[in-house]
Amino acid sequence: MHEYSIVSALLDRVDDAVRQHGATAVHRIRVQIGELSGIETELLREAFAVVRARTASAEAELEITAIAAQWRCCACDQIVDRGHRLSCPECRTPARLAAGGEILLERVEMEVP
C-alpha cells in the first residue's frame, strides 16, 4: 500500500504553497485521482486522516474527484471500449489512456491572515 507515501508527497507540496502564501491553515485540498492511476481513493482518505495531524492541513478536508478511465485511438481519437482489445476498432492503431491516469493536485484553499 503506497497511499501513505502519496499523502506524504501531497502534504509536502501543500506545505510549499502554505509557506509561499504565508497561510495559517489549510481548509480544503482538491485532488483528481484516475481509475487506472494505481491509487485507491478510500485508502488515500484513510492515509490522509492519519498523516495530516501536526501539519498545516490538520483540519483540512480532502476533496477527491475520481476520474473514470477512458481509452482513445492514438490516431483518430475514437473512443476504444474497455473489455476488448485496446486498439482502435476502425484503424487498428493502439489506444492511449486519455483519462483515468490522474494523480493530480488541483487546488488548495488556505487561510491567509
Binding site: I6, A9, L10, D12, R13, A17, H21, A23, T24, H27, V31, I103, L104, L105, E106, R107, V108, E109, M110, E111, V112, P113
Partner: peptide, 17 residues
Amino acid sequence: DSDVVSVEIQESILATN
C-alpha cells in the same frame, strides 16, 4: 477575519519523484 484564498496548483502529486 482571515481571508480564505484558493490557489490553483494543477501539478502531479508525484512531481518530486
